[in-house]
């Protein structure tokens, strides 16, 4: 079996797991929309939230929702011995890690990005900028999952892994968050957002390059 076929198989499996297991995206989605709904209350605005604040709240919500998903990312597989099978198989563990990252992005990240226009509208943002906001969140969540997977892999199987993952991962999420919130704010204000969006894409590509080898190395540690 070629690596590509194995990869697609892995990807499809991860995708179906993420969606099947009690609606994998449901909890992050509920969390995401909940934060968007609470945003105006927290800011004490009577009417509309400023575009900059709306974008910031949605990006923060995405980051925290990602942490929720990361907590479970490698945990179940480690417990059930699936990771061992992956490591022993002829295919590189790096491919498995990449398949997992992409599957999580498609299963959790993209739906959240799709929900973001609703979140923005709840906060009173003008509808015109919301597709661009969704695009920035879509790219950004790929960066979040790629960088976050490294932390998830390092902490897999440890006690209080969720807290450790948060400590490890949050500094790395800062970069896409900074650029992404800027892109989102500009999109909602009707300004040009290409520059920060490209920087988000750059962090995503960087994450995709770094994560598979780092995750594989970290997972092998836990399998020894």
């Amino acid at each position: 079996m070629s690596v590509l076929t194995a990869f697609t198989g892995l990807f499809r499996r991860e995708l179906s797991l993420a969606w099947a297991g009690g609606g994998g995206a449901a909890l992050p989605a509920a969390f995401f929309l909940g934060m968007a709904a609470l945003g105006p209350f927290a800011l004490g605005e009577n009417l509309d939230v400023a575009p900059k604040a709306a974008a910031a709240i949605l990006w923060l919500a995405l980051a925290l929702a990602t942490l929720l998903a990361l907590d479970r990312m490698f945990q179940a597989d480690l417990e059930e011995g699936v990771l061992e099978q992956l490591a022993l198989s002829a295919n590189p563990l790096e491919a498995g890690a990449l398949a997992k990252i992409l599957a999580q992005w498609v299963a959790v990240g993209l739906p959240l990005a799709g929900l973001s226009p609703l979140g923005a509208l709840i906060m009173g943002a003008p509808p015109a900028g919301t597709p661009a906001l969704a695009l920035s969140l879509a790219v950004g969540s790929l960066a979040f999952f790629a960088l976050g997977a490294i932390g998830a892999a390092l902490a897999a199987g440890l006690k209080r892994a969720g807290l450790l993952i948060a400590i490890l991962v949050l500094p790395f999420l800062a970069a896409p968050l900074i650029f992404g919130a800027a892109a989102g704010a500009r999109a909602l204000s009707g300004q040009a957002f290409a520059e920060p969006l490209l920087l988000v894409a750059a962090t995503a590509l960087f994450g995709l390059a770094l994560a598979p080898p780092a995750c594989a190395a970290a997972l092998r540690l836990h399998l020894d």
């Binding site: 490294i150 390092l154 500094p171 790395f172 770094l210 780092a214 190395a217 970290a218 540690l221």
Partner: peptide, 11 residues
């Protein structure tokens, strides 16, 4: 030590 080394290099 190996996990920390990986994290250090990523950072």
């Amino acid at each position: 030590s190996r996990a920390a080394a990986i994290l250090c290099l990523v950072g």
